[in-house]
Design a protein around this nucleic acid. Structure first.
Lengths: 251, 251
DNA sequence: TAATCTATGGCACGCGGTGCCATGAGTAAA
DNA sequence: TTTACTCATGGCACCGCGTGCCATAGATTA
């Protein structure tokens, strides 16, 4: 049993160096611009050698996205530890929430970084590639869990898995960017949950609905009434569903 | 009137050089690998100087994606020239179809390039960034056209615009990759249209439905049968809708 | 004390990408 | 034909990112 390998203190130093490098990069990028800053300057500002920088980050851009790798494995852990009863879409929503929390953990840094990603193409593309990794994760997860928990089992499941995954990611992106543009104020996570509800309603019944029932207040039981829907079958299913939705209040 | 500027022949030469560079890059990347190929070698294979390469392509990766820039402006043209009556979502679908056509125009090259993008991270990220540009285009377009043509006008329109755009792009990506994995055989465009139909059905009535009615054959009138769905109103609207869908046959 | 592991520093090198200037071919105007 | 202009190219020189390699210092274990 090789013991925790008491490199504990050295490892702590590693994290500290990494954070100092990241902070130095953020500061220099914001003041001198991204292209105007060299890796040598970042390393010097953090008090280490240039070579050390590349031992902590694979590239110059990665210096201001220090948490994506860790977040990716945490998201994977969320997917892996999901209880079988939960609807896969809800699991994925919980996964992307983990990503949002990473941004929300330090709003000032996220807002400052957002300014950079809007102006510097290299940084923007790097972030796009980063979130694409989450997207791939979700798509693969839904591919493997749709046939089991889904009432429908058509040939279009792989398509729906990919579309659903990208929809969840798009919702996250939208809520995140709106929050960042607003300066990082307010409860992002609540806003994301609301976006999830909107998506669930918009997707209608085609995709599974999970938390919306339990999240919504007991939904005014309306007594024991019964609803009956009648329709000409010459109407398309979509039209019928739309009529029913309208009759239900379409909240 | 400055006349067509008879640089016609020189411009034709430019295109030819560009294509030769691209072809040389494809060939060298496939045989020697991406990292194992230098820009000097590509230029030499095309019979031009290294400096000329960078006059035709912004980066080494772009050499095997020579058509994304042109396609982007063509997609923009599709969006701009859309007639007011068309539903914005259908316009966007026509836009992404333009992208698919670009791939379908030369299946062998696309298939070969697909092998590269799967193995080389730099190329994969470059392609992801490329399609992200289409995504942005669509999102902005839907943002500006949802309030007008949409029956609903809630605060969630921007969210839905982003989700819808990413859904369309995701559908395109899925159809495209499946086609590429199959070796580039078959009618991709028809497959994409089918994916659009699936999306329209899945999105249900929340988002507008455009071509699906007029594209579908008169929908087998089924005579004048009547369908009845019954549900307790204590059930959530989503459950009711699901019951109705089931009653309709849930095709 | 000796051996090992880990993080770091320092060096050199390849190569992508850019700025600058010269050159030559094709074109419009004298 | 001569002159002037445009444009694509060639040929440098330079910066800077990213990596391989080796030496060194500190901490741990035998």
């Amino acid at each position: 049993m090789p013991q925790p390998r008491s490199t504990a203190r050295t490892t702590a130093q590693r994290h500290r160096v990494r954070q100092e490098l990241s902070a130095a990069a953020m500061h220099l990028f914001s003041t001198k611009g991204y292209e105007g800053t060299t890796v040598d300057e970042i390393a010097a500002a953090a008090g280490v050698a240039r070579r050390t920088f590349f031992r902590h980050f694979r590239s110059k851009e990665e210096a201001i996205f220090p948490d994506h790798d860790d977040t990716l494995v945490r998201v994977q852990a969320v997917l892996d530890s999901a209880e079988p009863g939960e609807h896969p879409l809800d699991t994925v929503c919980r996964g992307i929430t983990e990503v949002l929390r990473m941004y929300a953990e330090s709003p000032e840094v996220s807002v400052e970084r957002y300014k950079l990603t809007r102006e510097v193409p290299a940084l923007r593309e790097h972030e796009i590639a980063s979130v694409a990794r989450y997207d791939r994760l979700f798509t693969r997860y839904l591919l493997g869990h749709f046939d089991e928990a889904q009432h429908r089992a058509g040939d279009d499941d792989p398509l729906l898995a990919e579309v659903a995954a990208s929809a969840v990611v798009a919702a996250h992106n939208h809520v995140l960017r709106r929050w960042l543009r607003a300066g990082g104020k307010g409860d992002v996570e609540a806003q994301l949950d609301h976006a999830f509800d909107v998506i669930r309603e918009t997707f209608g019944t085609g995709m599974g609905v999970g938390r919306s029932e339990q999240a919504r207040p007991p939904a005014e039981p309306r007594g024991g009434e019964v609803v009956v829907a009648v329709a000409r079958t010459s109407a398309s299913p979509a039209e019928v569903l739309r009529a029913v939705e309208k009759a239900l209040g379409a909240e």
